[in-house]
Design a protein around this nucleic acid. Structure first.
Lengths: 226, 226
DNA sequence: TTAATTTCCGAATAACATTAGGTCTTTTTA
DNA sequence: TAAAAAGACCTAATGTTATTCGGAAATTAA
């Protein structure tokens, strides 16, 4: 059915690109079908051959992006050992994808949830897949002892996702004037220190502290713990 | 100017209440001025005596709510000693306010950021005030030694706010079928364990071991407010 | 080459937000 | 108190936008 004329971008893609740019730039409301079709060099009526309407067009954008993400994620995590390492990879991977596709990200974070029936959409179930990976990671960490045994995976996931989303939202609101990766290392360490057992906490290695403490001149009382 | 006929709700309030309900229920887009004015028992034209337009009306809602929050927050935190206690109060207070005014919260979290010029609005600067309190709390915690000395307050704030917002957003998306306070205790403990020095971590009292081994380092005055 | 199909467009249509212009009521003021 | 001013409200335009209609041009299939 689809015969991609490689010489030029397909019409559908042109529409999507135009819409993506305009939605992200001016917002969904202020962007008119006339704007989009002008940018895509097409009549307004023709646009309706490709999308059922403005809302359908909006939904199509995150739909594609999130699908790509899902496919990529599996490959990215493949072969990585350990829950903390997976968590780290997840974070760096996702931030890179967001930095590479800020328009998609903006549409996802700003215009998707407003849709009222967003919960019933294809995109939402795909987002849940992305989140489910995190749950698995926390469950693995718990199982292997890398993370605290009494941790609640879904709570940990809330904290992790919430933090990610907030950082991204701020970055988008501030017109992405800085790098998303600024302070990321520190943020990750802080998060991990909440989840992991102490031995695995790189930010505050207790073993080392203990060792230091027992060496400090004033501190030696009774080193009854080891 | 204002002569509040106490016998009935003022017209302006009626409009705001109608808009709040309809926006939160159907979304900003699907709600028409006709809907709102019908609900408020008013002609469409009359509505424009009170608000410049649909967008102005939308903005008015969080504007009022956030102003109230700011005024309340100061009183709520007044007299509470210790950064962790303040943090806890902040969280419980805010969640209660959200649970009491879910429609306002929904408008804030779902329809405000989409506004493109949201950054220039009155509401945004007020939201920043709310967030600034958190920064102060983390700085205080750092200063008093209640929290880790190497913590970055703005990173801690990101984690805290991100987590809050994510929990609230989920709750709203799921039609608030459960209590916002479900698992809150556990979530808070997990967060605090990332921020605090070990002695204040009730979940995993590793530091008590250390404290036994050494004396409290550098004369930390831990307010024993737990 | 002809029929079918796809791609596209100009011109309606319809749903809205917003304005204009006016009536009726309440408040002010002289 | 009576006239004037201000306020609250309305019906009926007006203008903007999304969406649909009916058909033309271009492409593909036979």
């Amino acid at each position: 059915m689809k015969h991609p004329k490689n010489k030029k971008e397909s019409t559908k893609d042109r529409i999507i690109d135009a819409a993506k740019m305009l939605f992200a730039d001016q917002g969904y409301l202020k962007t008119t079908i006339a704007d989009i079709s002008k940018q895509a060099e097409l009549s307004e009526a023709a646009l309706y051959e490709y999308f059922q309407g403005k809302e359908d067009l909006l939904l199509a954008i995150p739909d594609m992006w999130v699908s790509e993400l899902i496919e990529d994620l599996e490959r990215q995590l493949f072969g990585i050992k350990g829950a903390v390492n997976k968590l780290r990879k997840y974070l760096w991977w996702y931030f890179r994808r967001v930095e590479e596709s800020p328009l998609d990200a903006k549409i996802v974070y700003f215009f998707l949830k407003t849709n009222a029936n967003f919960m019933q959409t294809e995109v939402y179930s795909n987002v849940k897949v992305l989140y489910a990976y995190l749950l698995e990671i926390f469950e693995e960490g718990k199982r292997t002892g890398e993370m605290r045994s009494h941790i609640n995976p879904s709570i940990a996931r809330n904290i992790f996702i919430g933090t990610m989303e907030h950082i991204i939202t701020l970055w988008l609101l501030r017109d992405r004037k800085y790098s998303l990766f600024e302070n990321l290392e520190e943020t990750f360490d802080l998060l991990v220190s909440a989840f992991t057992t102490r031995e695995n906490d790189p930010a505050l290695p207790v073993r080392t502290l203990l060792a230091e403490a027992t060496q400090t001149p004033s501190g030696i009382k009774h080193g009854n713990e080891a």
